[in-house]
Amino acid sequence: MLHYPAATPSDPVDASDDAPEAGLLPRYLARIGYKGPVAPTLDVLAALQAAHIAAIPFEAIDALTGAAIDIGADAVDAKLIGGRRGGYCFEQNGLFLRVLQAIGFEAEGLLGRVRWMLPDDAPPTPRTHMVVRVMLAGRPWLADVGFGAAVPPQPLAMDSEEAQPTRHESYRIVRHGDVWQVAALIEAEWRTLYRLDSVPPPAIDYELGNWYTSAHPDSHFRHQLIAARTTAEARYGLRDNRLTTRLVDGRSDRRYLTADEIERVLSEIFLLPVRPHWRPAIERAATAEIVG
C-alpha cells in the first residue's frame, strides 16, 4: 500500500495570471481540504486522489433531472468547486487532470469502455469512461477519481499485472495489446471495471462520450439516482433508494430509504447542496424496485 504523507503546510502555489489554470489550485485544494505538499511526486498524487474522492462525491443528478452537463473547464469549476457539487467521470477526471498538469505532473486523459457488472462475453459498450494516466520517472500510473463506488482509492501501476492492494479492494491491470483491462477483487472474484484504450483521444471524443452518458436514453444515469463517496474508512453508495455502506474492516450495511431520507443522506453523507428541483427525481427513486 502506498504511503500517504501527513498533512503539512502547503508549498507555495503560483496563482499568477501567467500560471496554467491561474487560480485553480488554491480553490481546488481548499475544496478537497488538502494542506499537504504540492509537487509532482507519487505520494502527492496518492494524497490528492484520496482527498478528492472523499470530498467531491460521484453523482449524475443533472442527467437524471434533464439538465445538460457541460464538461468545459469553466462549467466544471463552477459546479464542482464553486457550487460544491459532485459529478461523473468527465467532470471529475477532467478537473483532476487540469489540477495535476498545473502542479507539473506529466499527465494525459484516456478513454475506456465500462464493463462493470457485465459478463465477459457481453457486446462492446461505448467509450464513456475517462481516466488520467500519469508518468512518473518513466512509469505509467492510473489515476481515477470518477468511477463511483468502485473507484480506485489510490494510483495504480499500469506496468504491472500483479494484484495491487489498497485500503479497500485489491486491483489488477492486465494489458491486452493496446488495451488495459482494470479489475477489482470483490467478494473473492476479479470483476472487470473497464477497458482502456492506450492512445489519448481528441477532445471531441470526450464530448461524444459525455453526450451519450448524460443524454442517451440507454444511459442508466437517465433512469437511476446514483451517488458514491469513498473515504479512508468506508465506501458509500446510493442507487435510487438503496444505501450501501462498506467499511474497510469488511463489515457492510444496506438499507432502503424514503424520499426524505434520501434527501438527508445526499446532504449528510454525500455532502451535496440538495436543490428543490431534485425532489421529483428523489420521490421517483424512493419508489424504485432495485434488482441485483
Results as ranks from 00 to 15, higher is better:
Ala122Tyr: 14
Pro126Trp: 12
Leu45Met: 01
Thr41Cys: 07
Phe90Gln: 03
Ala107Ser: 04
Asp43Trp: 05
Glu106Thr: 14
Ile69Tyr: 04
Gly72Ala: 10
Asn93Met: 04
Phe96Ala: 07
Thr128Cys: 04
Gln49Cys: 01
Phe58Val: 08
Thr125Tyr: 04
Arg85Phe: 06
Pro40Ser: 04
Ala39Pro: 02
Arg127Phe: 08
Asp120Ala: 14
Leu97Tyr: 07
Gly66Leu: 00
Ala47Val: 06
Ala50Asn: 01
Cys89Thr: 05
Ala68Glu: 14
Gly109Lys: 05
Pro40His: 07
Ile61His: 10
Arg85Cys: 01
Ala60Lys: 09
Gly109Ile: 05
Leu100Pro: 03
Gly86Asp: 05
Leu80Gly: 12
Gly87Ser: 08
Ala67Asn: 15
Met130Cys: 09
Gly83Ile: 02
Gly104Glu: 04
Ala55Leu: 13
Pro124Ile: 03
Trp116Leu: 11
Arg98Asn: 11
Arg115Ile: 02
His129Phe: 09
Asp70Lys: 09
Phe105Lys: 01
Thr65Tyr: 10
Ile56Gly: 00
Met117Asn: 12
His129Arg: 14
Trp116Thr: 06
Ala47Phe: 02
Arg98His: 06
Met130Pro: 01
Asp120Gly: 15
Ala60Trp: 01
Asp77Tyr: 12
Leu48Gln: 11
Phe96Thr: 03
Ala102Ile: 01
Ala73His: 15
Ala39Val: 10
Glu59Trp: 05
Asp62Met: 12
Gly87Leu: 08
Ala51Lys: 09
Leu45Gly: 07
Arg113Val: 08
Tyr88Cys: 05
Gly72Trp: 01
Ala51Met: 03
Ala51His: 15
Gly112His: 13
Glu108Val: 13
Ala75Arg: 12
Ile61Ser: 12
Gly86Glu: 04
Ala78Asn: 11
Phe90Tyr: 15
Phe58Ile: 08
Gly94Ser: 14
Leu111Cys: 03
Gly72His: 11
Ile103Gly: 06
Gly66Glu: 02
Val134His: 05
Asp62Trp: 13
Pro40Val: 01
Gly87Pro: 01
His52Ala: 07
Arg127Gln: 14
Gly112Pro: 09
Glu106Ile: 05
Gly66Gln: 08
Ala122Pro: 07
Leu95Asn: 02
Ile103Pro: 04
Glu106Trp: 02
Thr125Met: 15
Ala102Tyr: 10
Leu110His: 13
Gln49Gly: 00
Gly66Arg: 03
Leu42Tyr: 06
Gly83Ser: 11
Asp77Ala: 15
Asn93Tyr: 12
Glu91Ala: 14
Glu108Thr: 06
Met117Asp: 10
Ile56Thr: 11
Ala67Gln: 15
Val99Ile: 09
Leu100Ser: 02
Pro40Gln: 00
Leu80Thr: 12
Gly109Arg: 14
Gln101Asp: 02
Met130Ile: 02
Ala75Leu: 02
Trp116Asp: 12
Arg133Met: 14
Gly72Asp: 12
Asp43Arg: 14
Gly104His: 02
Gln101Ser: 09
Ile103Cys: 00
Ala102Lys: 10
Pro124Trp: 00
Val132Lys: 00
Thr65Asp: 15
Phe90Glu: 00
Arg84Pro: 03
His129Glu: 07
Leu110Tyr: 00
Val114Gln: 11
Val99Gly: 03
Pro123Thr: 08
Ala55Gly: 13
Thr128Asp: 04
Asp74Phe: 06
Leu111Met: 13
